[in-house]
Design a protein around this nucleic acid. Structure first.
Length: 212
DNA sequence: ACATTAAGTGATT
DNA sequence: AATCACTTAATGT
């Protein structure tokens, strides 16, 4: 599939033909393997990533390396905080790590201004993107503040199943514990509980989610 | 066979 | 829900 087709297929927003042409001409395709970092906390951001294929996990971390997964990015998404960074020339407040192998098209922030004023579809896309991220952020706050760990865990598993489009997750209890910023022991016990409730099935390095 | 890593468990706070 | 201390199970070399 050509790059242009991918852009058309995966991005909900209908970009104008001229904008598509520019993205195709200027953009640089990059591939990330599972586990690789697209952008780390503190990095200067001078590009806008458009996600063509794969899933990124966006993670926040404090100075003691306590981390918490905030949300996942799917194809058609972009890292909205990139826009903030661009406008204020700041450093990335989050880390984006490839959850699967990914294909991304990078565009220098240099073109951002121009596209914002020239293309309505781009403006809409940016605003829409901001909106979605904001909502996901609120959801993340809600789940952290109001939900108990067992509910958070189930939500985490279901979210992951949804973005990965695969009901069998390949992960470890420890990794989940990192993402939810809790301990492995707690996750192991809660997973066992979910299994007893018939909502999941546990295997080594693998969890099958039955209750979607 | 041995070391390493993942997961399970009881007790305590 | 977190932590500790320990066991058991699976996997790699």
């Amino acid at each position: 599939m050509s790059l242009e087709d991918k852009l058309k297929d995966f991005f909900a927003m209908q970009f104008e033909q001229e904008l598509l042409d520019e993205i195709v001409k200027i953009g640089e395709i990059k591939f990330y393997r599972e586990g690789e970092i697209l952008m780390d906390i503190g990095d200067n951001v001078d590009f806008i990533p458009f996600l063509l294929r794969g899933v990124f996990k966006v993670v926040r971390e404090d100075e003691n390396e306590n981390e918490i997964a905030i949300y996942f990015l799917e194809r058609g998404d972009t890292c909205a905080s990139t826009f903030v960074n661009f406008l204020h020339t700041a450093k990335s407040p989050v880390r984006a790590v490839a959850e699967t192998d990914c294909e991304v098209i990078m565009v220098s922030t240099h073109y951002f201004d121009k596209w914002m004023s020239e293309y309505k579809s781009f403006r809409d896309y940016v605003i829409e993107s901001y909106n979605i991220r904001l909502n996901e952020l609120l959801e993340a706050i809600d789940s952290m503040v109001f939900m108990k760990m067992n509910e958070r865990l189930l939500k985490y598993l279901q979210d992951k199943v949804q973005v990965l489009r695969n009901t069998t997750l390949k992960t470890t209890h420890q990794q989940i514990a990192f993402d939810l910023n809790t301990s492995r022991v707690v996750i192991s016990r809660l997973l066992k509980q979910l299994e007893n409730e018939g909502k999941i099935r546990i295997g080594r390095n693998k969890i099958e989610v039955l209750d979607i």
